[in-house]
Every structure is written in structure tokens, then in C-alpha cells.
Write a protein that binds this DNA or RNA. Sequence first.
DNA 1: TGTCAACGGCACGCCACGTGCCGATAGGAT
DNA 2: ATCCTATCGGCACGTGGCGTGCCGTTGACA
Lengths: 199, 199
Amino acid sequence: MTGTPGTPRRRGAARTEELLRVTLELAAEVGYAGLNIEAVARRAGVGKHTIYRRWPSMAALLLDALNLVWASDLNYRDTGDVRADLREQFLRSSLALTSPPIGPVYRAVIAEAQADPTLRAILHERFLVTVEQSTLDRITRAQRTGELVTDANLEFAAEVLCGTLYYRHLLTTRPIDESAIDGLLEMFMAAYGSNGKSR
Amino acid sequence: MTGTPGTPRRRGAARTEELLRVTLELAAEVGYAGLNIEAVARRAGVGKHTIYRRWPSMAALLLDALNLVWASDLNYRDTGDVRADLREQFLRSSLALTSPPIGPVYRAVIAEAQADPTLRAILHERFLVTVEQSTLDRITRAQRTGELVTDANLEFAAEVLCGTLYYRHLLTTRPIDESAIDGLLEMFMAAYGSNGKSR
DNA sequence: TGTCAACGGCACGCCACGTGCCGATAGGAT
DNA sequence: ATCCTATCGGCACGTGGCGTGCCGTTGACA
């Protein structure tokens, strides 16, 4: 692996890719606890400088590593049934959140973000806003097609949908299972479904 | 302060109270970053053993410290207007979450809980379940008085209400302000309010 | 072939962890 | 009033990660 041709590079870029890959490996194997710079350096057979030259902190490295495996997993289908599409994506996201390497890396970033407002802002903008926006896009389309009422502020709705899943995953011992997702979607559709309350 | 009479005690109990107080002081003054056992010991003029004899880890100490200042702040009023009562309590909780000493201590516990499933379970049972239950109690009363529809599963609703607030506080850069709370309550009432959709 | 930045390896000081040992002391028991 | 003993504060230790220097080496590009 000498890196993609085209971009002018030296040893640097190839090492960068490898370090991100090693970080994800480490997360998958030893989990949150083993995620520190020294461990990544040892595992990669690399001097610590080689890491510090690229990322100012472990948190920054984790953010990049997360970016590598995460973005691909976020694409709502649009079958015309907003409830079914949300359900499918929520199940998929829940699986991703609980599986390595995304699970441990995400947890590690969130833990570090509690100590660092700047990191929290980056985490928010780079990941959570994206998740919410993607959800908002899908339910806004549903609003336009008449599946949802037209006069609702869906930004809060998107935040509630995503936030509830994150809350359950990070702070509770409950799994994000089908009944949880159905309960959440029940509330969402009762509030915003255009065909009135189903009950 | 020699501790409550009745329970047979020696120097221990008084020290315990003082250590919890010092922990909260430290959290209020230096925040999350300065919360570690050595710092508490230094601040209290105490040997580390005196802390380790009482709590197996910093997380356990933080849980006890949190318990001391937290429980009192959770009491929904019951004016007969469930939306107004929720709104008031959410505003109060949001203030507590963002102010010392509860803010930094809560953040510290949650960060440590990401690395320790056992701690996460304790945090969940001891605090979050209590919050949700208190909310569930209030909205269940509202259901009985006819403010909310009778056939809804309010357990999910309570989780969604609390979870959304925690999500916003912990993972976003947005404040839990009045408009956020109103947006959340708007969705909640639209879903479960007994007088049909207001729109 | 020469140049030079990136590299791996090593060592350092710092700090928090968790534990062990010490002599002092407080407070209940006699 | 005196003894006894658990608790106490103080100190030191080894461990391990942090972030930063300083080497001599290596590989990409001119």
C-alpha cells in the first residue's frame, strides 16, 4: 500500500492511513480501555512522534478514525413509507453503534468530549448534526409528500428522534431494540402523521 | 459536625461527609478536569487511603457526591396543567445540569461510565431511572385526569422527554433553552394530548 | 547521487494511579 | 484514668500514559 497516486505524497500519507486502520483494529480488539496513543504507536510499530505529528491528541485521532468507518452507514431509503424507512435506518444505526469498531471509538470520543467543550463542538458539528440533518431531510420529504402534517417544526422532531437513540445507547442499560424504535416512531407519527391519531 | 447520633460511629462518618463536601467544592471550582482522587485528598488534607477506604474508585465517590446535591432538585409540581409543569421542571433541571457542582460531577460520571458498563448500570438505575420515573409519574397523573390520551404507552414518552434533554446537554453545543423545551413539549402534546392535534 | 524531511527508538520529567508501611491519635472499652 | 485498636496523615514506591526532546536511519524526490 503506497497510497493513491495523483496526490503528491511521501511516506506521510500512507502512514496516516495505516495509523487510522490500526486505531480501528485496536478499538475492535481491546475496546475503549486500550485506546491510547502509546498503544496505537506500539501496535503500529511507530514512534509516538509519528502520531503527534498528525493529530494533536488522541481525541483528534479518534475523530478521524470514526470518520473513516462511519459516514457510509447513513443513508435513509425512500420507499414512500417514512415510518418504515426511519425504522430500518434506526435499526441499522443501532447495530453500528453497538458493534466494533464504531461502538468503542464513538464511546471514547464522547467520553473525552465531556472534558473538552471544543471537542464537543467538533463532535457535534461533524457527526451529530450530520445524523440529524439526514433524518431531517427524510422527514421533510415525507412532509412534502403528505405523509406528515405541513405545519410542524421538524427540526426538533429530528433532534428528538436521534437524541433518544443516543440517550438510550450511551446512558442506559437498555438495548436499542425493535420495541424501543417502534415506541419512538409511534410517538413521532402520533405527533406528526397527517392521517390524524391512529388511536 | 460530629455526625448524626444514633448510628455508632467513630471518626469515619464525619470524614466521609467532609470528603463528599470537598469533592463538590472541587468540582465547582476547578471543574471536571481537576476531579481526581489525589486532588480531593490534597484539598481535604487527607491521605489517599482515607478515600480508598470508603470508595473503590473516583467514579464511586462522584456517584455519592452527586447523590448528595441532586435528589432534592426533582419534584414536579401538579398544577393541573401538565405541559406547564413539565416545562417548569425541565427549565429547573436544565439549570441544575449546567451549574456547578452538579454539572461537572455529572459530566465526569458520564464520561467514566463510557468505559465501565457496571458504572453505567449504576448511573442508570440510581439517577436516570429516577428521573424518568418521576416524569412518568407526572404524565401518568395527567393521563388519569384526562389531559392525555388514555391508550398511550407513556414509558417511552418519559424516556423520550428526558433523553432528549440529556442528549442536547451532553452531546450538542445547543443550550437547553425555552424554545428547545417548548419544541419538545409541542411534539409531546401533539402526540399524546387528549384534545386532538392543536394544528 | 545528494539532500532533507519523515521516520523508529530511546529517554526524560510529569502526574495520577493504587498499595504498603510508618508513627500519631482519637475514642470506646475496661 | 488508662489501655487498646481502628482510623488517621504522611511518605514512598512501582506502574503506566502523557507530551517532548534528541539521536541515527531511511526513503522520496531533485
